[in-house]
Design a protein around this nucleic acid. Structure first.
Lengths: 340, 340
DNA sequence: GACCTTTTGGCAATCGGTTGACAAAATAAA
DNA sequence: TTTATTTTGTCAACCGATTGCCAAAAGGTC
């Protein structure tokens, strides 16, 4: 019969007191030798480190966190963990965090702002800082959180807070021009959740760009940012009479394509579709999805870099500056074609 | 009445000492009232809870962890966080963990057993238990870990340890029979990493089933369990002369399909392909991928249930029994066809 | 009212590190 | 050699909660 784990976890782990005894010094000397290299005589330090190695010592993060308040953990809160978009972001964040000796805690808010608030509340005491990826909270709530611990936003911008938002204006410009060049005269934007800053942001840029290029443009939404959300909007899209659609994200775009296929509307000959993010799978659809990619893995990395800079009182500007130079661009595939 | 020198400390978070002062009781009484309902007189308890609410008190998890050794955190270690297969598993795990008041720490081992060992070492002191999803460690290493803290395995089985492995024998049986009925006489198994228990397991079942049904069967591998891994195996597959392939996972299957498309080999008319897992995107390919699905979200849930049962000294058997009844089945789509 | 239980709540030790203050030792300067 | 300075390591007070032990208070019984 399978027993979960072993039950003999009585063996207390080695402590600095054990090391102190073995090395014949005071525990506080051990602490200094380990955390404050140079503060202690080199030979004593070496002796202590040897003892630590011999005992296979690992600092107890909780004992350390108590007096210092530093936990060496950071949280990453995402709206929907199954959206492939997050995985690139999370991977970047995780890699950067563990590179710098931090542990990443992940929590999902399931697209609910109240759940997000509760999650933040629960996790805050355990971490040194938080990366909010696509937060659904209100500005004031986010600011309140940021007043307690360092916070970096991804895919959202709030005055006075650090953020990592790839510049997609060029990508959108390309996309709209692309549609224009294909002879389209009208575009619809299939928006995301009404609480999504990024959805509004994209709409704004698309609107501006479309107007500038003389295209008619409408917003259709809000839509749930999942495949079914796109599928559900088929009727509205068809009724709007547009010949091209830009969706808030690839998931919606994919859902729309599949809904259209069921209706016998062919893409791209009858309707051109462009998504956002270039998630896994967006090149697998038929036709392959044209999409505006944003560099999510780098964004995740930079968000963590900036967060840790803030936490450790370094200069966060560098990471944030680099982040400003992140840019999205159009990935041309097969879901767009000339209007006929 | 003794004046307790109620001078406010730094603007730090409220502690049980603040509550004690406000409620006019001893800190230990506060601790008991909060964690041990019933141990304390009802009216005192209510008074304490009121005070706690008024101060917006939240227990400091680190201060608690120190004497108890319980952190209310569990870790989930995955081989490759960008493999969509993990999305569902992680989502199930996260949901179940936060439901039960635990926080999920996620770490990625990047398919490297040494990195996995280091990661485990780093995270172990911070958590009450570990879910190893597709571990690449050796049995002995895993056992050593399990001797220190509760461990539950997903997608792997080691004697004496708790595991959650969906029963895919029926699904494989269906798949092989399906191929047989389509007139195929030979199958190749595109295996995964050589350190993957699950890859061996699948090969074993496929082999047995194929032999039983009188099909010729070969193993081609190991392959990296990513899209490029599948793409890279095209030559070997074509050279083997089989008319059907079962891949270790959907990613490899998808890669193979795309590699074949580049070679002008058409699926399924010239080669039938079956994957494993039914990940996001596997229904988006052309042709849509026939695959053996396993219930990953439930598996993630059950793994956490079993782990927490062990941690909290309940009975883990129930969750493990339920897990034994998880079964995978064939999802028939369009990547298989009659041999011609 | 005396005696015995059971509740209830306080005291103080403890978990494992960190760190300011300070003494002892070593080194440099006078 | 004496004094000033720096280096090195010790002491002890925390950090915030938990918990065994014990005494005071309350409730029951005869």
């Amino acid at each position: 019969m399978a027993e979960t784990g072993g039950k003999k976890r009585k063996n207390s782990l080695p402590t600095i007191y054990d090391i102190a005894e073995l090395a014949g010094v005071n525990p506080s000397t051990v602490s200094r030798a380990l955390n404050n290299p140079g503060r202690i005589n080199a030979v004593t330090e070496a002796k202590i480190k040897d003892a630590a190695k011999k005992l296979n010592y690992h600092v107890n993060p909780f004992a350390r966190a108590l007096p210092t308040g530093k936990t060496k953990m950071i949280a990453c809160i995402v709206a929907d963990i199954t959206n492939p978009m997050f995985f690139d972001a999370v991977r970047g964040a995780e890699a950067q965090a563990s590179d710098l000796g931090y542990t990443l805690v992940i929590a999902e808010s399931q697209e609910s702002s109240s759940l997000e608030a509760a999650t933040v509340e629960r996790i805050m005491p355990s971490v040194d800082g938080v990366v909010l990826v696509t937060s659904r909270l209100e500005d004031a709530e986010v600011k309140e959180i940021a007043s307690r611990k360092p916070v970096v936003l991804m895919n959202r911008r709030i005055d006075g807070l650090a953020d990592v938002v790839a510049d997609i204006s060029a990508g959108i410009e390309q996309a709209v021009r692309h549609l224009k060049e294909l002879g389209h005269e009208s575009v619809a934007y299939l928006s995301g959740p009404s609480t999504s800053w990024m959805s509004k942001h994209r709409w704004q840029l698309i609107f501006d760009s479309a107007v500038k290029q003389g295209l008619k443009v409408v917003e259709i939404g809000p839509n749930e940012p999942v495949v079914d959300g796109g599928k559900a909007s088929v009727d509205l899209v068809l009724a709007s009479g547009v010949s091209a659609v830009i969706a808030y994200n690839d998931l919606i775009a994919i859902g729309l394509m599949s809904g259209l296929a069921e209706r016998g509307v062919s893409v791209p000959s009858q309707l051109s579709i462009i998504g956002f993010d270039d998630i896994f799978g967006s090149d697998l659809t038929t036709p392959a999805l044209t999409t505006i990619k944003s560099p999510l893995e780098s964004a995740g990395k930079l968000a963590v870099q900036a967060l840790l800079a803030d936490i450790e009182d370094h200069d966060a500007e560098q990471a944030l500056e680099t982040a400003k130079r992140l840019a999205g661009h159009l990935v041309m595939r097969a879901s767009t074609a000339a209007k006929k």
